[in-house]
Design a protein around this nucleic acid. Structure first.
Lengths: 133, 133
DNA sequence: GAGGGCGGTATCCACCGGGATACCAAGACC
DNA sequence: GGTCTTGGTATCCCGGTGGATACCGCCCTC
């Protein structure tokens, strides 16, 4: 808690539009939380800095879910300071997460190319929405 | 199309409640479709047999999305027979998918244990829903 | 005792993924 | 000419996820 490395102010801003990736780890922001905790425990307010796009309600829920699944522990010091840290089980999640990141690093361009080659397939709701334009 | 192995009638029935896993690959059924196509191309109606839980609308959408992302190709023979097959890019997805499956095989029990240990954290919607019971 | 930081909650709301059900056009078969 | 199979669409609807905004109790400092 004392001299740990601070997280960058925005680890994820324009970086890694992970919603476009063909996989998701847990809740929308869970993978980013795991990344933030990878290098050591963090306090709630420390997590809010790099994850400033996430509202506190959603961040709370993400952390609760990670805690429920045994990936994160929440500890309170001095009855006020709250710290979140990865559990050993949570750390094992980094393997498949890294496999997914490796895939993205290797095949991201191919994915974008394919999507540009099929602009007619946008999102659900059938095609006549596009035709209606 | 001629003598390929038939898929089991229900590959996924009670097996692998993948919605409980902490990761998702694309749409809800996308990973299962990938698995079905792993051993060779399949027709729409062939996919419907093992994936009989999936309505045709959703299966169509899943396949369209996989096609848009370049993971699957759709080819029409004789103007009526439609075949879906993995592309080389789609086949590369099997690496992270297998990593996820390996994780699940190894840590599934720990995940369940953790969830049982935290019954108070159910799902979103804050806790007073549970309290209201 | 006022203000600020910390660690959240409470409420409201919009989107959309996906399930249920019904229907359909084109060829093949009888 | 009916009927069956194939490969889907059309419509409706419901629940959950997550964003926006506002608020809160506690402690510490000034």
């Amino acid at each position: 808690m004392t001299h740990r490395q601070p997280l960058p102010p925005d680890m994820f801003d324009e970086l890694c539009p992970s919603t476009l990736l063909p996989f998701r780890f847990g809740d929308k922001w869970a993978a980013l939380v795991l990344r933030c905790l990878e290098t050591g425990p963090r306090r709630f307010s420390e997590l809010r800095v790099p994850l400033h796009r996430v509202t506190p309600k959603v961040l709370t829920h993400t952390l609760r879910t990670l805690e429920r699944d045994g990936f994160v522990v929440r500890t309170t010091h001095d009855q006020r300071v709250v710290e979140y840290a990865l559990t050993p089980l949570g750390r094992t999640l980094l393997d498949p997460l890294n496999a997914a990141c490796d895939w993205a690093a290797t095949h991201w361009d191919e994915l974008l190319d394919a999507q540009e080659r099929h602009p007619e397939i946008s999102r659900m709701g059938s095609a006549q929405q596009v035709a209606a334009e």
